[in-house]
Design a protein around this nucleic acid. Structure first.
Lengths: 224, 224
DNA sequence: TAAAATTGAAAGTATTACTATTAACTTTAC
DNA sequence: GTAAAGTTAATAGTAATACTTTCAATTTTA
């Protein structure tokens, strides 16, 4: 377990938190149970008061780690995308064929996450559910431009840029690489959402995953 | 003006409101200035108290029209999608060629809306900005399944189903018509958002609109 | 002209989203 | 080993939100 934690260092922008939650027991409890509570009651109903009650800590203690629940969600999202980025890096690192690299990256970025035990206090499968349900809310605020300047969305944009480079390797003549990739990464969250809640307007299901749709899309679209 | 209103009857599910805002002067003021206020301060900061102050009415009067601000946003969204549906219907009605019908529908669904004077109290261009910024929030709640059962998202799904039928006419062998269309309708809002806020991960700009990206996409993808 | 419906004003409640203060506890430094 | 520094918890407090209720005034309609 220690060795796996050495291999994988999550890089969350330090401006997102007041105090790094990875540095204390309370901090890790906030992350662990915060994920579970947001999944259970949804981000709108989630408050630091409720999370404090759940972990037996006072509300004010939680404010020493995160300014507010919006920053907390940005923290969880950054952690998630950093973890995805790491997995894309590991999977594609030794691969030479551009189309194979692209396929691997898109698979990792669009797949449903099954439980993983890399980190003791984070349930990646539930975190993935939260990202599907809530990630869009980190961007859709009046503060998005300032927060973007502060670098809060850097990891997310870096993943997209990595995949854009793969698309350009596969077919340098395709004129919409950026829009295609940002569509796929965001759109796959949406397809997962539709699978759960608006089943009639998606082809995706347990047996026919969003990943299949997007792999079919890129192979048709980038054919020369 | 009267004749244009006869031609175009918006069908908003009556469960969305407490009292139909179209039936009174106050109701129309709520819609008109509600749109302007959400655009100005964002949905998170928007409250009925602030809107009441803006239009010189008491907060409690606004609650006679809408249960809460979430329902108000669903009302505005339904109005918007109903208006888009009407425009798609008018544009494609007399067209026989399936690819042309599809092109027209996708253009209408993905284009930025310039001001339109169909209705005196609704600024469609600003409403379009609100949809780009806030529509996703109507779906991403814990109540989405109940609200879907109540039919709150019917018009949105109906537009998508209409375009799915056009895709099937163009190429009945394409296996992901539903996911493709739901991706396009939702994704175009996202591309418009990126154009404003995260310019580095989209090819879209004033000169190269999301509509172009999607028209290129379907013509490549549905080619036989 | 009476009845019904609409609106506004005022007051009230529970909860949210914090901040400030102080005391208790833990860690580190010499 | 003890003093100083830092961390955490408990309590209390504030302003705003998201409503609801009541009642009076006004407007509409029958």
């Amino acid at each position: 377990m220690e060795s796996s934690q050495l291999l994988f260092k999550i890089q969350v922008n330090s401006k997102i938190y007041v105090k790094d939650p990875e540095t204390s027991v309370l901090g890790k409890k906030i992350i662990e149970y915060g994920i579970l509570l947001i999944d259970e009651i949804g981000f709108e109903e989630f408050t630091f008061k409720k999370l404090g009650d759940l972990i037996g800590s006072n509300e004010s203690s939680l404010y020493r780690y995160f300014e507010n629940k919006h920053k907390f969600l940005i923290y969880l999202s950054s952690w998630y995308w950093s973890w995805i980025e790491y997995r894309i890096h590991v999977a594609t690192n030794a691969v030479v064929n551009p189309f194979e690299k692209l396929t691997l990256a898109i698979t990792i970025a669009t797949e449903k996450i099954e439980d993983d035990s890399t980190t003791a206090h984070i349930n990646e499968s539930i975190l993935n559910k939260i990202i599907i349900q809530e990630f869009t809310k980190t961007l859709h605020t009046k503060e998005v431009d300032e927060e973007n300047k502060e670098g809060f969305f850097l990891i997310y944009k870096r993943i997209i840029n990595t995949i854009i480079a793969f698309v350009n390797e596969v077919n340098p003549d395709y004129p919409y690489a950026k829009s295609l990739v940002s569509s796929i990464v965001e759109g796959s969250l949406h397809q997962h959402f539709l699978m759960c809640h608006l089943k009639t307007i998606t082809n995706c299901s347990e047996h026919n995953k969003p990943t299949n749709f997007y792999l079919h899309l890129i192979s048709t679209l980038l054919k020369k």
